[in-house]
Simulated scan of single mutants.
Amino acid sequence: MQKLIYPLLFLISFNISAQVSKLGPQGFYLELKKYSNPQLLDIRSSDLFEKGHLKKAYNIDLASEEFESLLLQYYDVNKPLFIYCQTGKSSLQSEKYFEEMGYKDIKILVGGFEKWTVSSKPYVSSQNTTRPLAYMTIQNLNETIKTNEWVLVDFYADWCGPCKKMEPILQKIKSENKNLTLLKIDSDKNASIVEKYEVEEIPTFLIFHNGKQVWRRTGLLTENEIKSYLF
């Protein structure tokens, strides 16, 4: 009986020994400031990392086959491990994984990089621009939809050819209809909103009337096709 109990007690004590802190942007920021060289891990893809990331962060894509070996190579299991992703979802889902890897003090950025930027926290970028990243929270989107009679939402990306062709059409519709709010969502920079509305193709267009979605289409559309669902 004792041979069965001892391993069980060991596993229980191991799980308890891991301290996991789930912190919002301000709490995460204050904890980082306590260390001159924090173990800060960005688990997003390399292209998202290049567009913008926290200062002193090291990027290892969670989807990479080399993730585990690189993690143990660069990050000491006995020191605090700061983790963030794009929306916070991947970090939270990986919590147990990092515990099993032996990390004893894990600090997760709740809301991820999106929440960090909309909270006006500092970040660095390899891009030759000082423009703020175009992130929007679901709360801000919902508020816009509720407080405007007609809202046309355009899910786009900078690299999307059809999106660029639709831009002058959208702007023309907006200029001719003062009761219409045009809301553009960069799909590459607003993963949580893309997930919420299950956007799988771009461009994707949604029309809301008095807070309710009344229309949805994807791809290239004519001016008349969009206007026929307005007013």
Rank of each mutant, 00 (worst) to 15 (best):
G112F: 10
G112M: 08
G112K: 01
G112L: 01
G112R: 10
G112S: 06
F113M: 14
F113C: 07
F113R: 10
F113I: 04
F113G: 08
F113Y: 10
F113H: 08
F113W: 08
E114C: 11
E114S: 12
E114P: 04
E114Q: 10
K115I: 01
K115N: 05
K115T: 08
K115R: 15
K115H: 11
K115A: 13
W116F: 06
W116N: 08
W116I: 10
W116T: 09
T117Q: 08
T117K: 12
T117H: 04
T117A: 05
V118P: 00
S119T: 06
S119I: 07
S120Y: 07
S120G: 00
S120W: 00
S120D: 04
S120H: 12
K121Y: 00
K121T: 03
K121W: 06
P122E: 04
P122N: 03
P122D: 08
P122M: 07
P122W: 07
Y123P: 00
Y123F: 14
V124H: 05
V124I: 13
V124Q: 09
S125M: 02
S125T: 13
S125A: 03
S125R: 00
S125L: 06
S126D: 10
S126W: 10
S126Q: 02
S126A: 05
S126N: 12
Q127L: 13
Q127I: 08
Q127V: 07
N128Y: 09
N128C: 04
N128D: 04
N128R: 11
T129G: 10
T129D: 06
T129F: 05
T129K: 02
T129H: 03
T130H: 13
R131F: 07
R131W: 05
R131M: 07
P132T: 12
P132K: 09
P132R: 13
P132F: 01
P132W: 05
L133G: 05
L133F: 03
L133H: 03
L133I: 14
A134C: 13
A134I: 04
A134P: 08
A134T: 14
Y135N: 14
Y135C: 13
Y135V: 14
Y135L: 00
M136A: 14
M136E: 03
M136G: 02
M136D: 01
M136Y: 01
M136R: 13
T137E: 05
T137F: 06
T137L: 12
T137H: 02
I138R: 03
I138K: 04
I138Q: 03
Q139F: 09
Q139C: 02
Q139M: 06
Q139H: 12
Q139G: 02
N140R: 13
N140V: 09
N140F: 07
N140L: 12
N140A: 15
L141H: 05
L141P: 11
L141T: 11
L141F: 14
L141R: 15
N142S: 04
N142L: 06
E143S: 12
E143V: 12
E143D: 10
T144L: 11
T144Q: 10
I145M: 07
I145C: 04
I145Q: 04
I145G: 00
I145K: 09
K146C: 00
K146Q: 12
K146M: 04
K146W: 03
K146G: 00
K146Y: 01
T147N: 15
T147G: 00
T147S: 14
T147M: 04
